[in-house]
């Protein structure tokens, strides 16, 4: 389960970067208004944030062991 979570988190991070990068490129290339970037940045940022969160949770679990991972969950 952890491997799946990390793999999908990584894919989402790459996708997020791709969305922001390609939109930025389109704006620069076609001269579209900068306001058009708001949504791609938001969606891409959320995807990147989701991936980072999964890696952070995994990293915290690795550093502190399974007991700390259990305790870090909301009670």
């Amino acid at each position: 389960m952890t491997a799946i979570r990390l793999a999908t988190g990584t894919i989402f991070m790459i996708l997020g970067a791709l969305i922001i990068g390609r939109s930025l490129w389109a704006v620069l290339e076609r001269g579209v208004g900068w306001s058009a970037l708001v949504l791609p940045i938001l969606v891409g940022g959320l995807m990147i944030g989701m991936g980072i969160q999964r890696w952070r949770a995994w990293w915290a679990g690795q550093r502190s062991g399974p007991e700390a991972d259990r305790l870090s969950r909301p009670k």
């Binding site: 996708l15 969305i19 939109s23 389109a26 704006v27 058009a36 791609p40």
Partner: peptide, 17 residues
């Protein structure tokens, strides 16, 4: 994932927006 990676055209999205 497949949509964004292989089919998404930012120009179309930005133009419609």
């Amino acid at each position: 994932v497949i949509g964004f990676a292989f089919a998404w055209q930012p120009e179309l999205f930005l133009r419609q927006w």
